[in-house]
């Protein structure tokens, strides 16, 4: 039984699987607010990066380390096959219990994580492999060692590396797209978001603290910043929305992941038809026009 979020309390009295339950669930999820979507995107049972790697890719071989400083398990990378095609996969992983959350540092990557991503993207280029990134982070790690090792520089170089690829890159925001920590592996040819994921320049809590000087204004901040997949599609910031099962990906994990696979495979096949030159021209146009 999936853990209920505060706004799902009306489901408590209903029996799972009954028409009344399904009706109530659908009605809740049809009118989620921006902040409610933020909570869904952070749900502990939502499929995370490693879940996707295990479910929709085959022959995954993890590759570790940035060859400068260390290895960062907040951002997992490696080689794998997607529908038979060899690809480089990058995935942020938050962990799902105390031990794994610590291991993956809650999905908050340090400079070495982004430098590993750069290294693997260069490898993708070298061997002509497309890059698939699965984004799920509240942001880059905000700690002294992150600053010491130049997290700003690492994010900037990773973003620049996405943009200079000669191979196709697809990013999927599977949970939280947290600012610079996300864009570093999401400046892709195509960017998709799961139906109840969010993508923003700062968390609603952070924005509320700074602009309203009151973290309790997080709901207003979430609305004002327009952070939902639906808002971002409307503004043409992202290329498409991947539907989730009714009640969110946390309620039907395999179905949710399988629909991501179907969606991404189709898009990837289309991108693979383009020459490197056409791909880069198209990418250039996309980012030139973005936000204009």
């Amino acid at each position: 039984m999936v853990q209920l979020l505060p706004f799902e309390k009306s489901l408590e009295k209903l029996e799972v699987g009954t028409p009344a339950y399904d009706k109530e669930l659908a009605s809740i999820y049809n009118k989620l607010s921006s902040y409610q979507k933020t909570l869904v995107s952070r749900h502990a049972d939502r499929p995370h990066g490693l879940d996707y790697i295990n479910r929709i890719f085959t022959d995954f071989q993890e590759l570790a380390g940035d060859r400068f400083y260390g290895e960062d398990q907040a951002l997992i990378g490696g080689l794998a096959r997607l529908d038979g095609m060899p690809v480089v996969v990058l995935a942020q992983e938050k962990g799902h219990d105390i031990a794994t959350r610590q291991k993956h540092n809650f999905g908050l990557a340090k400079p070495e994580g982004y430098r590993k991503a750069i290294r693997l993207m260069k490898m993708a280029d070298q061997f002509g492999l497309p890059v698939i990134s699965l984004v799920d982070t509240d942001g880059a790690f905000c700690g002294a060692e992150s600053e010491e090792r130049g997290v700003g520089e690492a994010i900037a170089q990773a973003t620049a590396q996405c943009l200079r690829l000669s191979v196709p890159m697809i990013s999927v925001i599977i949970g939280a797209g947290g600012s610079g920590g996300a864009i570093a592996i999401a400046a892709a040819d195509k960017v998709f978001m799961l139906e109840h994921s969010v993508y923003s320049v700062i968390s609603p809590e952070g924005c509320a603290s700074i602009l309203w000087r009151d973290p309790m204004m997080k709901e207003a901040a979430a609305d004002a910043m327009k952070i939902t997949a639906q808002d971002l599609k409307k503004m043409n910031i992202i290329d498409g929305i991947i539907d989730e099962p009714v009640g969110g990906a946390q309620r039907a994990r395999f179905d949710a992941m399988d629909s991501v696979k179907t969606f991404v495979v189709k898009e990837l096949k289309a991108l693979m038809k383009l020459s490197s030159k056409d791909l880069q021209t198209q990418r250039r146009k996309k980012y030139d026009a973005l936000t204009r």
Partner: peptide, 9 residues
């Protein structure tokens, strides 16, 4: 909002 983030790439 997101328009600001997109100025990075």
């Amino acid at each position: 909002g997101i328009n600001s983030l997109m100025q990075m790439p």
